[in-house]
Amino acid sequence: MVTCILSSDGNRSSASESNTTGITAFSLPGWQLALWALAYLFLILMALTGNITVIWIILAHKRMRTVTNYFIVNLVLTDTCMATFNVAFNFVYASHNIWYFGQAFCHSQNFFPIMVMFVSIYSMMAIAVDRYMAIIHPFQPRLSALHTKVIIGAIWLVASGLAFPQFFYSTITVEEGVTKCIVNWPEDGKVKLLVYHLTVIILTYFLPLVVMFVTYSMMGVTLWKQVVPGNQLVRVQQRQRHIAAKKRQFVKTMVAVVVTFAICWLPYHLYFILGTFRQDIYCHKFIQQVYLALFWLAMSSTMYNPIIYCCLNQRFRSGFRLAFCCCPWVTPSDEDKLKLFQRQSMLTIHKNHNKMSLSARKASFPETPNHQEGDLGFQLPSKL
């Protein structure tokens, strides 16, 4: 976090402060360290529990294995990795300004956050584009499972390339007996560093958010203005209204995810933009508290998505009830099991019912054309 070893208000730390004592000018008092440790521990436990549960809900139930949900798995996987491999180690480093974990982990610690942040937001963008095509262009070919895997692989590959300079220039330094993990750009690389930071922020934050804002705005306008023609049968009207309602609910869910991500990460990005122009801010004691707060806010985005899915999506809510059925206050119902396990049988029942209903309608209403039968129900599922 800190690139200098000055104490608060510009006073220099004593040269006797060494790595062996575990004390620097940026070491926190015990009570502050305990409070921050509890806050970060809570974040890690919530993120791991929620995201692993979401992965289980999707991968363990065939009904949930859709193109959109594969992108969601990719998203929650990056959140899980971030909570597991980045939060705790960065907290230890930020709370003492001493690097304890060696050269190899120094490389990965600077490389990993940028990579997973890129993967997270581009997984969200892929979901937005996929839903945009399904809602705005419903008769265009949809992504296959193979194409979905190729896109996910490409996202990880581009993310690795974007984060590689952080990996390449990471190094361990010892300043006045204090070991630090820094990204040591070349002496003539100040302009390159600024360009790189701005490129990362644009590619991992502003550009994807603009794309998602446009796509979700267009989807919202289309869905909220959607009207079922009045001359259709009541059953068909109800069915199409139900489909439109599910799609609107999905849009609400993903908009909540995107807005949460944007709010959590914006202060963190602004912090590093300011630090690029004013590196002296890193030499003040107060900046440690600022960084810990901003880093916690950014990392907290890893624990909010499962909460959003559970609150706004019925199937995920059913999945969470099944996952935590051992808890005395959680009682899954038969309907919860039906939503996750009975895909094929339910589809068969609905198809048979629709065939019988269609035959009856043709006999009763011979003037009704075939294409008025609600053809969106199973071809364009709007579920997560």
Rank of each mutant, 00 (worst) to 15 (best):
P306V: 09
V150F: 07
S300W: 01
Q109K: 13
A163R: 10
K225D: 06
E367N: 11
Y282I: 05
L6E: 08
A94R: 00
K252T: 08
Y304M: 10
I307C: 13
C326Q: 11
P113C: 03
P29F: 05
L292F: 09
E367P: 02
S95W: 01
F168V: 03
I58R: 00
F105Y: 13
N231P: 08
F341S: 04
W156T: 01
S318M: 01
N19I: 09
Y196P: 02
A128Q: 10
P138E: 05
G275S: 15
L203C: 12
V54K: 02
S144P: 07
Q249D: 14
L198V: 14
V67T: 02
V174Q: 14
R315D: 05
P306L: 04
L376G: 09
V158A: 10
W185D: 07
P208K: 12
V73R: 00
M346S: 12
L292W: 00
M303R: 03
S217H: 08
P328S: 06
V183L: 10
N313T: 09
L143W: 08
G30I: 15
I55E: 01
F26I: 03
K337G: 06
T20W: 15
R131A: 03
W185R: 05
S120R: 10
L75M: 15
T49V: 15
V87M: 03
T173E: 14
F164Y: 12
R248Q: 13
V228F: 06
A94K: 01
R235T: 12
D280K: 05
Y169F: 13
V290W: 14
L340M: 06
D280W: 06
Q226P: 00
A154T: 10
R241Y: 15
F91Q: 02
L340Q: 00
T260Q: 11
L340R: 00
I273D: 01
K225Q: 14
G177N: 07
L270S: 11
L75T: 09
M125P: 01
S95A: 14
R131P: 02
G220Y: 04
F341G: 01
L347I: 07
S108C: 13
I72L: 12
Q372D: 11
T84W: 06
F139W: 14
H269N: 10
P381R: 05
R63A: 14
I155S: 00
T24I: 13
V178E: 00
E17A: 04
L43T: 07
P229Y: 09
A256Y: 09
N184I: 13
S333L: 09
L203D: 01
N69I: 02
L207N: 07
Q238N: 11
A298R: 05
Q166H: 06
L338F: 08
F250E: 00
K252W: 11
